[in-house]
């Protein structure tokens, strides 16, 4: 039985009528055409589908719509403001912290959540905070550099 869910996506209120068990990931990608959020594993273990829900990182592939009501969702498409990139996005570009780029959205959102909690993380804290995200091109070294650089930018 479908339910009607109202949620805010990147600052815009959306009403979705759908199966309550349908993953948030599918609604973002299929209904909202926000394909920056990726399917990687469907089991919440790779982090490619990470979005912020009320500021906290969630794995949208294992988040059913029944849990998304009245929530505020930020996807990768919602980070840049008025054409200027978010400092984390800038840092990823400056460090060249992507190869195929498929994991990048999830990496950036996980980094956003991490830096919200820990504005001046140590490398160990970056590694611990990002460890749930997999990159198979294995650009981990440059991603850690990018998160460290982003932290510096955001403190300024």
């Amino acid at each position: 039985m479908d339910v009607t869910v109202t949620l805010t996506v990147n600052g815009v209120e959306r009403t979705v009528t759908t199966d309550p068990q349908r993953p948030l990931l599918d609604v973002l990608r299929e209904d909202q055409h926000l394909t920056g959020t990726k399917y990687g594993c469907g089991e919440g273990r790779c982090g490619a589908c990470t979005v912020l829900m009320d500021g906290k990182p969630v794995r949208s592939c294992v988040t059913p719509m029944s849990l998304a009501g009245k929530k505020s969702i930020t996807t990768i498409e919602g980070l840049a403001k008025g054409g200027s990139l978010h400092p984390i996005q800038e840092a990823f570009l400056e460090e060249g912290a992507m190869q195929c780029g498929y994991c990048t959205s999830g990496m950036i959102l996980s980094a956003a959540a991490l830096l919200q909690d820990k504005p001046s993380p140590t490398d160990e804290e970056i590694i611990a905070g990002m460890n749930g995200n997999i990159c198979r091109c294995n650009g981990y070294v440059k991603i850690v550099n990018a998160v460290r650089r982003a932290a510096g930018k955001m403190r300024r």
Partner: peptide, 22 residues
């Protein structure tokens, strides 16, 4: 060390991978 021409689209989510084509 020229960066990839479409790398901005990778950090904004704008790039459409094969699985993103609609």
């Amino acid at each position: 060390s020229v960066p990839r021409a479409n790398n901005r689209d990778l950090v904004t989510g704008a790039h459409q991978f094969p699985s993103d084509v609609a």
